[in-house]
């Protein structure tokens, strides 16, 4: 019989890997890595999401059309983020003229 699902062993292995990644992200939460706390947390989250999408949601082994639909959501999310953050993170690129000094705390465009 042709199957589109994996054997239970695969699912339990992925589940164990997800639990280990959870333990990792939880314990790293108590270590001060400065701004790298966020980087590590996001890297672990993305790995976990990929495991879920590839194996539980069967992206691995599914049609190109489904790959496209799944990727489309991510691409539009990246557009949403890059355009908005492109605004917020570049507001201090244009230095004001000397007569209109903006205090540093307003550089990021804080409301």
């Amino acid at each position: 019989m042709e199957t589109s699902t994996h054997s239970p062993k695969v699912y339990w292995t992925i589940c164990a890997a997800l639990m280990m990644l959870l333990a990792l992200t939880w314990s790293i939460g108590y270590v001060n890595l400065g701004s790298f706390n966020l980087v590590v947390a996001l890297a672990i989250s993305i790995s976990k999401a990929l495991l879920v999408a590839l194996f539980f949601m069967h992206i691995k082994g599914s049609s190109r059309l489904l790959h496209l639909a799944a990727t489309a959501g991510i691409i539009w999310l990246l557009i949403l983020f890059s355009l908005t953050l492109g605004d917020y993170f570049t507001r201090n690129f244009l230095q004001p003229t000397s007569s209109h000094k903006v205090p540093p705390e307003q550089f990021h465009g804080a409301p």
């Binding site: 992925i14 997800l18 639990m19 959870l22």
Partner: peptide, 8 residues
């Protein structure tokens, strides 16, 4: 995470 494994 565990519920997702059961769902699969």
């Amino acid at each position: 995470l565990f519920s997702s494994a059961l769902m699969a």
